[in-house]
Simulated assay, not measured.
Amino acid sequence: MSNRSTARTAAAVAMAGTLALLHPAQAHATAIGSTPVAAFHYQVGGVTMKIPTGCLFTHIIRGGGTNITYQNAGVDCGFVGALNSGFCNWRIDFTYADTDNRRYRTSRGRTHTECKIDPMRNNGPQRLPRYGRACAHLNINGVRRVSQCHHITK
């Protein structure tokens, strides 16, 4: 492979990754998307916890049409974000809505009281009754902090 071909391939891969971050992915086979976690503060047992910038919430779906065979969501932190004390009292929920954005199903995760730098949750296979959106939501101390969604289309 020539250097020019390698450079074109690398540029195409970088562009595809950038586009994946900008628009909800279509869940024809596999959809992967990440959303930055905005910096925020919250209280745990009278102690102020700070989540700095540098973390991404990533949501992955595999399947086809309305059949989801695998679903996962979690947080990855780098740079300054990796230095935080973790996410305490966290929960990850998965929601499903139709094309009119009416939510018809929620898979509520368990609230984890421990502090974790990389909270993650898998969700079981789903056979959705209609097309629309599948979303993952990160809740900290009962407050939704970030969401990431994929369109489920024909």
Rank of each mutant, 00 (worst) to 15 (best):
Y96E: 02
G109Y: 02
V44R: 07
T6K: 15
Q71T: 15
G46C: 04
T58G: 07
I51G: 01
G64N: 04
Y131C: 14
S34P: 14
Y131I: 15
D93K: 05
A25T: 10
P129S: 15
H59E: 10
R105I: 01
I152Q: 02
T18I: 12
A27W: 00
T53A: 09
A97R: 04
R91V: 01
R127P: 00
A31V: 05
W90E: 02
T113A: 12
A7Q: 13
R144T: 13
L128T: 13
I32N: 11
G124C: 05
R144S: 10
A134V: 09
A20S: 08
G81K: 00
D118Q: 06
G132K: 15
C115Q: 03
P52A: 11
K50G: 04
F40W: 13
G63M: 00
Q43S: 15
I117L: 09
R102V: 14
I51H: 00
E114H: 12
C55T: 01
C115H: 05
V47W: 08
T48P: 02
S34I: 12
Y96G: 05
R105L: 04
L128F: 12
M49T: 13
D76L: 06
A10R: 05
D76W: 03
T66L: 10
D100F: 14
M1C: 15
N123W: 13
L56C: 03
K154E: 04
F57N: 05
H23G: 05
A31C: 09
G86M: 00
S5P: 14
T153L: 09
A29Y: 06
F94G: 04
L22N: 10
I32G: 10
G65M: 03
S5N: 14
H41P: 11
D118L: 02
C77F: 08
H151S: 04
D93I: 07
T35M: 08
N84S: 08
A20R: 01
T66E: 12
N139F: 10
C88F: 08
T58L: 09
G74T: 02
G63D: 04
T58R: 06
N67K: 02
A27N: 02
T111E: 07
T58I: 14
K154F: 06
R133Q: 10
A16H: 00
S34R: 01
V146M: 02
F87S: 01
